[in-house]
């Protein structure tokens, strides 16, 4: 439980910074030729994406999407299973930032939470394919298996009250007879 509280205590920006360190370790060998700290995303794109993901799954008593490693999940898959979605991400993130600059004269990552919400709501209306993709991938990263870099420390499963690690093998001891007609 301690580690969870700690994660909550980090602000998003601090957390992205921490993610940056983790990302650096991963990027040894620099698969992408990417100069930044992620496999696919540039640092700027990662900041924009974090702002969007954290509107989709915001922090409350439990960590937000980015705090739970969703960016790591998405970034890794843009290098693997989701290579085909790279263009949608590139253009969508660019567009999100443009929109933010137009309305608030700053990048999305620098905008206030209320402004970020406004932009993400606009994306949901105007940039449906991009929004749907990010929403789906964020949910996968947050609620899926920790092995892919999201759902860090199975935080969402604990949030739902599921045993982690799961209890297994008890069936052998359950000999109740079921109801019959």
């Amino acid at each position: 439980m301690q580690s969870k509280n700690k994660a909550v205590a980090l602000t998003r920006r601090q957390f992205v910074a921490a993610g940056v360190l983790g990302g650096a370790a991963l990027a040894v060998g620099c698969k992408s030729g990417n100069q930044g700290n992620w496999d696919f995303l540039s640092d700027g794109q990662a900041r924009t994406l974090a702002a969007i993901c954290d509107q989709i799954v915001p922090a409350d008593e439990f960590p937000s999407a980015s705090q739970a490693g969703v960016l790591t999940y998405i970034d890794r898959q843009l290098f693997r299973h989701y290579r085909r979605h790279r263009d949608v991400y590139r253009e969508g993130l660019e567009h999100a930032n443009e929109l933010s600059r137009k309305r608030f004269a700053k990048d999305l990552a620098e905008a206030t939470p209320a402004q970020q919400l406004e932009i993400v709501s606009a994306l949901e209306k105007e940039e449906r394919p991009f929004f749907d993709l990010v929403r789906r991938h964020t949910m996968e990263g947050y609620y899926g298996s920790p092995r892919h870099g999201g759902n860090r420390d199975a935080v969402s499963w604990r949030m739902l009250g599921l045993d982690e690690p799961p209890v297994r093998g008890r069936a052998q001891y359950d000999m109740r007879k079921g109801a019959t007609s």
């Binding site: 799954v57 409350d60 949901e124 929403r135």
Partner: peptide, 8 residues
Amino acid sequence: SWGPGHKK
């Protein structure tokens, strides 16, 4: 379909 209401 997203946001705090969805998470809750």
